[in-house]
Design a protein around this nucleic acid. Structure first.
Lengths: 203, 203
DNA sequence: GAATGATTTGACCAACTGGTCAAAGCAACG
DNA sequence: CGTTGCTTTGACCAGTTGGTCAAATCATTC
């Protein structure tokens, strides 16, 4: 009977290289556009060698999505019921915008998946994600009732933050094509801060 | 020497059916995920028959993108320099939101293309699209200088409208997963109207 | 209704893709 | 240094895909 063993140094290095390469390729070409051979080459391995570490292309994709989803939702989890409402929300927006700037591949990986109907993570969306959003939407609603931020639809508020911030990663080429040489992330933080301040300041 | 002839009734019908089917398939599966056979079947034709009307899969995709880009940008073109600034912008936002609701496939077709680096329409983005946005951003800037709407970064303002409204089409499954049974388009128009009113009302 | 051109199809092909496998290479440990 | 188990690879396979082609069918027009 084979027991699970401590992963070798080589195993750790190669699995990490594969996931890194796969993130590159999947986020740029989508699941179908990505080929195992391309991922393998990008990871510095041969195709059969890659398949020695992961049983299938699908398995790599799943592992990537699962691993990243947690990190991706951390900023929303961090929304603190005890903090100052407006500042908490602005911190969330800022953090999301930074992630869009610093981890655009992760954003595009999800975008690719969701635009095509989220065939692989639909279940997670309607359970885990929904639960988290429900909780935070309730928190926002409470703040609104207490008159600490202006009254708006809490779910649509969250959607607006997602769309606004991730737009800079997901639609990067479009944004850059329109802006020409100007750096998208120069004006963005100021813009979104102004937007949510004006939207949410009570009265 | 063969001359271009008047397209037959059959030609008109079949080409239309193909483009309609292709919009369905491309928007759901992306360029790579879509197969010629699938498009053909969806159009009620055999694969060789489809290739009698279009020389290649690529050609169908190009024709679709080109055809739709114009319609897609019409609302922005309609932004009227003579109208009331805030009402013009709100009308634009409303129109975009309606298109997201009524033509989600078109939205997702572009989303798919742009998320993957817009390999096929990059040139158009940095010429035609940029020119149009430059023009309208200048108009917005003028309105801001005249004190008729609040001062914000005009380009980011336009990006925010795109991202907010198209989010409901492009990320439809996510939105629905989170909202459960509630219709996304119930609360959305009111939310975005409030958002842009508060953002742009001067003073 | 015969001739002409438009339309449709089955059979086919070459390229690509995900995945397998047996054998070879390699590292570590006694 | 030989054994053991981990790692790597070349050769291969079956299924899919975009696209071709000659032949058959259909519609139109004279």
């Amino acid at each position: 009977m084979t027991r699970p063993r401590q992963p070798t140094r080589i195993q750790a290095r190669n699995r990490a290289a594969i996931l890194e390469a796969a993130l590159d390729v999947f986020s740029a070409l989508g699941y179908r556009g990505a080929t195992v051979d391309r991922i393998a080459t990008a990871a510095g391995l041969s195709k059969p060698n890659l398949l020695y570490y992961f049983p299938s292309k699908e398995a790599i994709h799943e592992e990537l999505l699962g691993r990243l989803l947690d990190t991706w939702l951390d900023p929303l989890r961090a929304l603190d019921p005890e903090g100052d409402p407006l500042e908490e929300i602005l911190a969330y927006v800022r953090r999301k915008l930074e992630m869009s700037r610093d981890y655009p591949r992760e954003s595009r990986l999800f975008a690719n998946e969701i635009v095509q109907g989220a065939p692989r993570i639909h279940a997670i969306l309607s359970t885990d994600l929904k639960a988290l959003v429900d909780e935070k939407a309730a928190l926002l609603a409470r703040w609104m009732e207490e008159g600490r931020i202006a009254r708006v639809h809490p779910y649509h508020l969250i959607f607006s933050i997602w769309s606004l911030t991730q737009h800079y990663a997901d639609f990067d080429v479009q944004v850059r094509a329109v802006l020409g040489s100007e750096d998208p992330f120069a004006g963005a933080p100021e813009f979104v801060e102004t937007l949510y301040r004006r939207l949410l300041t009570p009265g």
